[in-house]
């Protein structure tokens, strides 16, 4: 496996009781790449991300992060997760901490950095997402878009090898989606390696390097976003993108 590959996934399976959610998923993410994953709800996208940072244990299959097999039972899960940033659909900011502390707490507690240094980095990260003026505010005092930008800063501060975004704009009001996507686009252009589960086709088209279309626990179509969105080969993908198209573009007509 070359140095260029940050994440490699091989034949991932996951069952919940009788329900098989992942039925053999394989792909690779190169350094600097922005990988888009889309697909109808229930297709296994979120489960896939949770398996990738081992919040959920896959039943079968192997995952390598920077050449280290993380599905190996002897590995320190907490060390692995430090290298993976995770941005949740519901933000999940720590409610009792200010924006600044939300970003610095991981550096202080997990990376054992001293307070001053951690806060300096945290402030830099908040600046990067355009929120340094809101550093002292608590999550309840921020808008949804601001919360998600703090969450992105929190993930970035840990200097991860890769960032996972799990439908980062799905819980936002339409007028707040733009500010979050702008930050994500800027990061993608800076070649921050990421996997983005999203239905924002504009985002996928502008910065996505490859798009994976998931259906029923499998990746059934993959390619550069423009190809996948505009000329999907399989019927399921065609129907899916048609519906998205109607929803977003149809209204504008």
């Amino acid at each position: 496996m070359s140095d260029d590959i940050v994440l490699k996934v091989e034949d991932l399976h996951k069952n919940y009781g009788n329900v098989t959610v992942l039925k053999g998923v394989s792909f690779e993410v190169r350094r600097g790449e922005t990988k888009i994953i889309c697909g109808p709800s229930g297709s296994g996208k979120s489960t896939l991300l949770r398996c990738l940072n081992l919040i959920t244990r896959p039943d079968k299959g192997r995952i390598w992060l920077e050449r280290e097999e993380i599905t190996n039972r002897n590995i320190n899960i907490n060390k692995v997760r430090q290298k993976i940033g995770f941005v949740f659909q519901e933000f999940n900011l720590f409610n009792h901490l200010t924006a600044l502390r939300n970003v610095s707490v991981g550096l202080e507690v997990v990376k054992k950095m001293n307070k001053d240094e951690a806060r300096k980095i945290a402030l830099e990260m908040l600046k990067k997402v355009g929120l340094e003026e809101h550093a002292h505010k608590y999550p309840a005092e921020l808008s949804g878009g601001q919360k998600q930008r703090v969450a992105i800063a929190r993930a970035l501060a840990m200097n991860p090898a890769i960032i996972f975004y799990d439908e980062p704009t799905s819980a936002l009001d339409p007028q707040l989606i733009g500010e979050v996507l702008e930050v994500m686009k800027a990061l993608a252009r800076e070649k921050v390696t990421s996997i983005v589960v999203t239905h924002e086709m504009g985002f996928a088209l502008s910065v996505g390097d490859e798009m994976l279309f998931m259906y029923d626990g499998k990746i059934i179509e993959r390619g550069i976003p423009q190809e996948v969105i505009q000329n999907p080969r399989c019927e399921e993908a065609r129907r899916f993108f048609q519906r998205i198209n109607e929803l977003y573009v149809g209204k504008r007509r």
């Binding site: 919040i55 060390k79 997760r81 430090q82 995770f86 409610n95 009792h96 929190r154 840990m158």
Partner: peptide, 23 residues
């Protein structure tokens, strides 16, 4: 406490003890 708080702590690489004490 919402389960998301725990997920976010885990995602940062916190141990269970760190999560309980700090979050």
């Amino acid at each position: 406490i919402d389960v998301g708080q725990s997920l976010a702590a885990q995602a940062l690489g916190m141990t269970k003890i760190q999560e309980v004490i700090y979050i």
